[in-house]
Design a protein around this nucleic acid. Sequence first.
DNA 1: CAGATATGACAAC
DNA 2: TTGTCCTATCTGG
Length: 269
Amino acid sequence: MPEGHTIHRLAARHRQLFAGRPVIAASPQGRFAEGAARLSGRVLHEVEAYGKHLLHHYEGDLTLHIHLGLYGRFTDGAPPAPEPVGQVRLRLTGRTHWLDLRGPTACELFDPPEVAALRDRLGADPLRDDADPAAAYRRIGRSRAPLAGLLLDQSVVAGTGLIYVSEVLFRAGLPPTTPGRQLSPQAWEELWGDLCALMKEGAAVGRIDTVHAAHTPEAMGRAPRVDRHGGEVYVYRRAGQPCLVCGTEVRRAGLGGRHSYWCATCQPD
DNA sequence: CAGATATGACAAC
DNA sequence: TTGTCCTATCTGG
């Protein structure tokens, strides 16, 4: 369930549970056996999220790099750890908790140059203090590519996924096909500010809510919508359903290999 | 049960 | 643009 807010939450969780002490690492599934062996017994110094990437920095300049991709997920708990069920790529055990990782796109060990290379190829992360939104606008403002694609490009903005991009464009009243260079610096400033606010709230709460108070189920006199991703949203995965604001049928179209959702009335060309 | 689906990313055409 | 990775969960029969 990973957009950037989830990864930042996981970073805080892992820091709290494991940082400052040695951990035991194992790969019950076997696919990360070598890495787990190298890791095992080291002290976890710091945990960091960068966009959708999670980094565990261990003693001896060894960093565990994890990207959950579409399917990856973590579970944790207090001992005793359950018998591994399914494909557990990595199990960490600390003093007070265990942690299981399944189905990640990436689970690998990085040395410092590899960590630096990762940072270098990632764009502005709305959840990081060191984000550089001006650099992102330099890419966006001179591109003819659709805004949705630019915002999903992790080298432009890091941590945004389909939900946040669809929703922030709805809130800005911009269709996903808007050419990047059509966005004024002021419009970018607002978009970036909204993205930061939405994702910070998402990271704090643990779900994605993007619907303004005026359009909540209570305010509009409708039933709350419970979706698998667990929040109230305007357009994401609502194709064919009425727009929460104007009633127009929400549309969906393929855009750069991903789906894009929008209301043609609230987000006119 | 088989089949479809999923908030992602990358390689190969 | 298409296919592949990889795992769990939800759907329909």
